[in-house]
Nucleic acid binder design. Structure first.
Lengths: 183, 183
DNA sequence: AAAACGATATATCAAATTGATACATAAAGG
DNA sequence: CCTTTATGTATCAATTTGATATATCGTTTT
């Protein structure tokens, strides 16, 4: 058995709700999921082909295709649901975090502190923008927490809010320290 | 000109302090850097070869090799320092975050809440362990902040402390919500 | 009505990276 | 003496990214 590809689990998870095309999957990944995961067409389409070949998903012929336009809907199979459950039942996760921003801060000794401050401010701007989006999500979701589906999305959103607020606090402290000690 | 490989910048940054072997670089990445970046031998050795070919680093013949054992030290060149400075002067960074833990939480609807709770608890355990390490680093570094080199490391460590504490707060809240709403 | 444009949609490819593995020496411990 | 752990360089298949190609559809501009 081939080792689990993460993109396979994303696809199975999304298809566990309803049939989707590769393009739909990409849109969902670029939506609310983008705060904790990402995936490109270059991994999605090959994964769809291989998942179909191993019988974990199948083409949904019944979903009608009103235009002549090519739209390939996939749906999850029972084997696919089982595969998803097995993955979910393993509580061990691998989290892969790469902050180019911190790499630049770490090697800040090779330039002036102003460079590091600019790098931090750029990060701060991006995080502030994203935090505003997350706050809107959180607000809307907090009214519908009794619906189970929304609860899980709420949890990932509140994770984002908690960590992004921490990021912003750190940005303030870090800038202060760097200004105090400017050469 | 080929696009910047991130591993190249890690290597140039590390070599900007002193000459190192590929193995030394791996050890440093697995040390204090591991909280915000990672890299494998499979990327380090090819990068060393290509950086040498393009004249950004060179073999340090002068560092003596007391044993018969193979140990290839590399040192940064002036061109390498310039390359590092150019990268540092670009305040835009790409941060790449993938939390398999949150992916499992997000797709938690496909199983019982207990699975999600177990996934969160596993994460919590790992974060608690790492936070203890970061706290020790932070404590030791806070006494030597006047040394410029230590300041930058301190900043990345305090980033870790701030975000990890946020993670742990979220774990508490998330578990509470999941227990309250257990089917 | 034609042209231009942006969104939809599938697909492939080079390059970067991981994770595993291979190979070999040195040091430390039982 | 022997086994395990750390040191050290190196390669490879598999995964993933980021860019690009190709084409259709719907809307707006000329």
């Amino acid at each position: 058995m081939a080792k689990d590809r993460k993109i396979d689990m994303v696809i199975l998870g999304l298809l566990s709700h309803n049939p989707l095309t590769g393009y739909d999957i990409k849109k969902q990944i670029d939506g609310g999921i983008r705060f904790f995961w990402k995936g490109s067409f270059g991994s999605i389409y090959p994964a769809l082909a291989s998942l179909e070949e191993s019988g974990l998903i199948q083409k949904a012929e019944n979903v009608k295709n009103e235009s002549g336009r090519e739209r390939i809907y996939y749906e999850i199979t029972d084997a696919g649901r089982e595969k998803l459950r097995i993955w979910l039942s393993d509580s061990k996760s691998v989290n892969d975090l790469k902050y180019e921003m911190l790499l630049k801060v770490f090697f800040g000794g090779a330039t002036d502190n102003e460079m590091s401050i600019a790098t931090i401010e750029e990060f701060e701007k991006e995080i502030s923008r994203d935090l505003a989006v997350l706050q809107v999500y959180k607000n809307n979701l907090s009214h519908v927490l009794d619906q189970r589906d929304h609860l899980f999305f709420y949890l990932t959103v509140s994770f984002g809010v908690e960590t992004y607020e921490g990021y912003l606090r750190w940005c303030q402290d870090a800038k202060k320290l760097l200004v105090e000690r400017t050469d």
